[in-house]
Amino acid sequence: MVADDDLAESLKLAIAGDEAGFAVLWRSLQPAILRYLRVVVGGAAEDVASETWLQAARDLRGFDGGVPAFRAWLFRIARHRGIDELRRTGRRREESTDSLEERAARSPVRDVAAEVLEEMDTAWALELIATLPQHQAEAVMLRVVAGLDVASTAQVLGRRAGAVRVATMRGLRRLAADPRVRARDGGVGSGDAAAASASEGM
């Protein structure tokens, strides 16, 4: 993941309309946006993420702030787009239409087995997080995966900072108690591999 200092330059460029700058922002934030939306709207995540970026692009000219503010701003757009989607479809989450097995079977042969496994791991983790009560799931995703601080998360969710901390804690508690999570301990190869880069923060 790109450090905030490097992103700051790209953000400036993107605000001025530069596509290369925008591309850097997109590469750096799209995975987290997509995963967050995966938890919020399930199978519609990719479409909602596209809408999120379109709206951000439309309004970027007037943006006046640093990288942390931009990140919070972008996730707030994503959240509103996601809520719109849920209202429109009238359900909490649209389940992904294809199972992990189908996706694995479809993925090109050239994919390294490890990468497929890792994708499946990530999808599995997101599915579990999505089973949490919505505000806990969102808090966990924004804090842990998107790397937002408490204040930014509170801003995105429209809640108080204290409520965000509690929601995150309760979400983690539930996950820790989930038998599927407990059973998963140890047998994870890619999780360990991911730990090094993940701990640098997304």
Binding site: V144, G147, R184, V188, A194
Partner: peptide, 8 residues
């Protein structure tokens, strides 16, 4: 492990 997978 779960959290690391989520933020892989």
């Amino acid at each position: 492990a779960l959290l690391n997978m989520a933020k892989a």
